[in-house]
Design a protein around this nucleic acid. Structure first.
Lengths: 225, 225
DNA sequence: GTCTATACGATGATAGAC
DNA sequence: GTCTATCATCGTATAGAC
């Protein structure tokens, strides 16, 4: 009741307990993964009671989701900002630029390491670890992203068939997610020659690779020949 | 005790218990995922004692690994067979054919649904769920595959830089894995227009997309301009 | 060697007092 | 809103029967 009032009201001033849980969870998840981190570890680090987790979030799975969404939201916001910039230019969209707007914010986030946590591996773990919630909830989070960017890509490609473009977007998301989640595999198959920590190089390659793949997939064959 | 003797000795006649555990685990994992499936569920379905799991496999994680490897091994064998066929032809390798040899066995396996289990989702779950073992053990399972196929791709592309090719292979594996693991996302972003169960169409698109991406990534720019 | 019975500590979740 | 107490269930370990 008579809590010390916050000196500065945060944009979304939550109960401090809720935020402390989120911070601790993000930190521990990024270090040990979702499965290996217990709620008791989280509540201990957050100096909060165990039951507080199930009060503020209903379950561990929902906690995971909340942690992820807190990280994904600004990335998606950044994506839309970059796309807005491109579209407000008045010039025809270039596929490579649209792809850059889509990929770059994720790389920026990985580069950052800022704020509370070292969440580079977090999004990767999200893709690597749990099961169903990803197929259940990611759609909601990415609906606007998918709609805006697929329209932009279609425009850049010159009005191609939407279904084919969606196949391509799916492949592209896979390349991006796999790079984020399993960069160590790249180190392995390349015998250490390719460095997954080279974000600039990775972004450039991903844009070129994806642009070419999308063009091949959406190209009308009868015209090409 | 007085069991009916097997009419035909299987190639690797294991202790019946071990195989029953593997079968039950594969079945339950593919339905409910690794985390949600308990060892007690598995041993109940296999009509085997709980401790038998820790006797034959040391831990749940090792069990998961054994289940996966039993499915991956024949796929990789098939990949190498197809590549052998291509290379024994005496003709120059075509990138699309090499990629087909790499992708097709996975799609065949997904198409099959045969034998005991419905393991279409299993490989997908492997990619989606647990944490570190994938980066630890997949390399071992895929070392030969990566070496053989990267050499073949390099030959088909005309002696390009290996590092760039490895980046491309990594992106390609991501597209493949993401399609296998998260086909439902494709249904979502396409508004139901693209059908992830259309394996023939998926394989064809994946080959075309990947071939174009690889060519763009490994193309020498000074020559191209 | 194979397998079973049984027990242990830790986990995620819940109910009810404050 | 927060805490204590308690629950069923989990993965794992051990002792001993066949």
């Amino acid at each position: 009741m008579s809590r010390t009032p916050d000196l500065i009201d945060e944009a979304h001033s939550q109960s401090q307990t809720k935020d402390r849980i989120l911070d601790a969870a993000e930190h521990l998840f990024s270090q040990h993964g979702f499965v290996a981190t217990s709620l008791r570890q989280i509540t201990t680090e957050a100096r909060v009671n165990l039951a507080a987790v199930n009060y503020h979030f209903q379950s561990k799975e929902s906690l995971i989701l909340a942690v992820l969404m807190r990280k994904i939201a600004p990335i998606n916001r950044h994506r839309l900002e970059l796309l807005d910039q491109l579209e407000s230019g008045g010039q025809p969209l270039v596929l490579e630029e649209v792809l850059h707007a889509f990929f770059a914010p994720l790389f920026d986030a990985r580069r950052a390491g800022v704020s509370i946590s070292n969440f580079p591996k977090l999004l990767g773990r999200a893709y690597t670890e749990p099961g169903d919630w990803m197929q259940r909830v990611f759609p909601e989070a990415f609906a606007q992203i998918a709609a805006r960017f697929s329209a932009a890509m279609r425009s850049a490609l010159g009005g191609v068939d939407m279904t084919e473009l969606m196949w391509g977007m799916h492949f592209a998301i896979g390349s991006m997610a796999h790079f984020t989640a399993a960069g160590s595999l790249l180190t392995f198959i390349s015998g250490g020659k390719a460095d997954p920590e080279d974000f600039d190089g990775a972004l450039d390659r991903l844009v070129r690779y994806t642009a070419s793949g999308l063009r091949a997939l959406t190209m009308k064959k009868e015209v090409a020949r």
